[in-house]
């Protein structure tokens, strides 16, 4: 056989094997989480807080972590959204296209995107110390909001940048101001992108552990105020997997399964929404 054909065959096989290995490993992860998590999952797990301490107590569930995570990721997403939308609109509508400020801001977002979450955690905690704040839901929300700000802004920026130039011109030609153009034309055009970006950011926020380790703390109770510490699912997994008690470890597996399901559900919802929201979009 001709050497080129052998080469073709070898590489094609290798490439297929690599793709297969990749999906296999990811499939195995899902299988592991399901196999370990499903048996531990029951109503008590979902509706009770741990009894006798999250590390030692063998009774109770992970309600504290579920609620804490939803509060925390929800708050952080809202805060990041409040920051991201104006940032992206400013970059794309108000600012001159290739001005230094725009380039610098996009570069900063890229840098922040790459900053490890543990650095957000450590930085957030030093800021909190500065203000005399203890580990709390509020601290966690701020740290996670900073963590997901670049994820959200960049995703939105990508979408808004694809809004056709002619649409801006059409709006200006009708005598609209930049603000009106931004809110009525650009924002509407970018709604699906904004929704998807928000959901992606929420997914990242709810799954991150390192940034909330110091800033949100951990507790057995469902947080009752912004200034109280809050438990989160990722940390519930991390702490409870480390105990010697199988009963407590079960709470970790259940947490892992729930966290995975939440993240997957969000991802699916964002896909469906993105598909359904694109009706009024001018391409």
């Amino acid at each position: 056989m001709d050497a080129r054909k052998v080469e073709e065959f070898v590489w094609k096989t290798l490439a297929a094997a690599a793709a297969f290995a990749l999906f296999l490993s990811l499939f195995l992860i899902m299988a592991t989480i399901l196999a370990k998590g499903l048996p531990s999952l029951n109503m008590a797990m979902l509706t009770q807080t741990p009894r006798g301490g999250y590390y030692l107590g063998k009774e109770g569930g992970i309600l504290n972590a579920i609620v804490g995570s939803l509060y925390l990721a929800g708050g952080a997403t809202a805060l990041a959204l409040f920051l991201s939308v104006p940032i992206v609109l400013y970059l794309n509508v108000y600012a001159k296209k290739r001005s230094r400020f725009v380039l610098f801001t996009r570069f900063s977002l890229d840098v922040l995107w790459g900053v490890p979450s543990i650095v957000y955690g450590a930085f957030g905690f030093t800021i909190m110390l500065l203000f005399g704040l203890k580990a709390s839901l509020l601290g966690g929300i701020i740290a996670v909001a900073l963590l997901i700000l670049p994820i959200m802004s960049r995703a939105m920026d990508e979408v808004v940048r694809t809004v056709p130039h002619e649409l801006f011109e059409a709006s200006y030609a009708l005598g609209a101001t930049r603000l009106e153009t931004a809110l009525k034309v650009v924002a509407r055009q970018a709604v699906p992108g904004i929704v998807t970006a928000t959901l992606i950011a929420f997914g990242r926020g709810i799954g991150d552990a390192a940034s909330v380790m110091f800033t949100a703390g951990f507790t057995d109770a469902v947080p009752s105020s912004l200034l109280r510490p809050a438990a989160t699912l990722p940390l519930a997994i991390f702490y409870q997997l480390g105990t010697p008690f199988p009963e407590v470890q079960n709470r970790a597996y259940a947490s892992a399964l729930i966290l995975t399901l939440i993240v997957l559900a969000i991802s699916l919802v964002s896909r469906v929404l993105a598909r359904n929201l694109t009706k009024h979009i001018v391409k």
């Binding site: 940032i87 400013y90 970059l91 400020f101 801001t105 922040l112 800021i127 930049r178």
Partner: peptide
């Protein structure tokens, strides 16, 4: 309104750069 909103957005658009600086300086 347009001017005001522009100024407000500009202030917020400065946040990413500010956070990078604050992080470097703070740490």
């Amino acid at each position: 309104k347009d001017k005001l909103a522009g100024a407000g957005m500009l202030a917020l658009a400065g946040v990413p750069g500010l956070v990078v600086f604050a992080m470097i300086l703070g740490l």
